[in-house]
Design a binder for these strands. Structure first.
Lengths: 230, 230
DNA sequence: CCTGACACTTGATTTTTGTCAAGGGAATTG
DNA sequence: CAATTCCCTTGACAAAAATCAAGTGTCAGG
């Protein structure tokens, strides 16, 4: 573990309010590991032995059933994942793999569960974090059920533009096939829909996104804070 | 509030571990209300001023966007809803309406937030509950993204049969149009799919469901604990 | 530099799903 | 008891999306 890892992790909302000795004991049991690109480090159905914290790199959460796969989320540093399974001591509902070489901290679930019973500030932070995760999935599900493919794409691209600093041009943070899966469609469908959105103020060249007419695209997306976030 | 309400609520997982005085203070601020059938008591976007507990009746959680509506969940006693919004002091992501005459307890969010900071057993229970809610939405979303309409229907009906005590025949707990919305399809689509499932061991007559060949239906549904629950 | 793997696109086609319209039937209401 | 409302079903049609297949281009590795 690198010396300034501890300092950075300490600042995460999940840990920043903890008592020092609880934090120290939690970190004593933790360790950091490097994973190469494309490695599946969590398989759905496995017992949730660890809480994971992404320090560097990029991770995909995905789910499988009957030979099919779908992307549930893409994570970037710094953030935790699969907190809920850890807490309920239940099997993971999702698998996780690295999209690029990643540095990841692993905290044994037993230690986690023991320590949040002692440290009420930590417990509060977990409550807050879990409530946020819950709301994120609900928003995503609302989008899937209420919007068409084109609308989901338009909303996603406008949202990314906003996150990138309200730019009119930026690069896609993930591969298109992954984006398609995340948005609940096939890669072919995404490809065609992107083309059809050229009539609505969008231009995509490779992974470069250009909002030629953000307002017009907005009429397609109909952004909503209760789906797309604040 | 009825005298034995308090006793019953006390037994809910969320409250059973609480210190008595915290519980008392929480309940002092709470009140019970009767709602007629079909009344929307929560609108998405409104501030989350209350935690709701369904004592009697039936409640639908639904979401709207651009003139469309979709059913997110159907609740039965005894259970809480919209805990996450309450905790984050954020707007409701979903609306709620009664499907039948219902008796509902309302606990002011401010009291809730104050008291779970004092009572660590209550905090633990909230963590557990939230983690469970999170996993429930994830499972539902997995079903929506990975299964076809027919598969979702088959899985739902087998699951209900199991919940009803592994019966080969039972009555649908909700109207078909609601079920269709919950499963992410139109009522027409559900109607046709049910008919097509007659070749796969299912018979539906009005709201009566008959599993003529559960094993065959199981081949369509391909039940999975990581989607359908245990 | 060649090669293979892989991401992406495109076309053709099928399947699935949604939409619109109409009608039956059960339950509720006046 | 009649009238109405609402749920459900069905048919015809349109739209959306998935599938299959082929071809292009990029990139990493030999």
């Amino acid at each position: 573990m690198r010396p300034n890892d501890l300092a950075e992790i300490r600042l995460l909302p999940l840990f920043s309010g903890m008592q020092q000795d609880c934090y120290d004991r939690l970190m004593l049991a933790a360790y950091v590991q490097n994973f190469p690109k494309g490695l599946t480090m969590i398989r759905q159905g496995d017992p949730a032995d660890f809480l994971f914290i992404l320090l560097e790199g990029q991770v995909e959460l995905f789910a499988s059933w009957d030979g099919h796969e779908t992307t549930m989320a893409v994570l970037r540093p710094m953030g935790t994942f699969i907190l809920a399974a850890t807490i309920r001591d239940a099997p993971y509902l999702m698998s996780a793999r690295t999209l690029e070489r990643s540095r990841i901290m692993m905290i044994p679930s037993t230690n986690l569960r023991a320590i949040f019973q002692e440290d009420s500030a930590f417990a509060m932070a977990i409550i807050h974090e879990l409530a946020g995760c819950y709301r994120a999935v609900v928003r995503h599900t609302k989008g899937l059920k209420l919007r068409t493919s084109r609308e989901r794409i338009a909303a996603y691209l406008l949202r990314q533009a906003h996150l990138a600093g309200d730019l009119r041009s930026y690069f896609l943070p993930v591969e298109k096939r992954l984006l398609a899966s995340y948005l609940g469609m096939t890669a072919e469908n995404l490809s065609r829909a992107l083309k059809s959105l050229e009539d609505d103020g969008l231009k995509v060249d490779g992974s470069r996104v250009i909002l030629t007419d953000p307002e017009k695209l907005g009429l397609v997306a109909k952004l909503d804070v209760l789906i797309d976030g604040g």
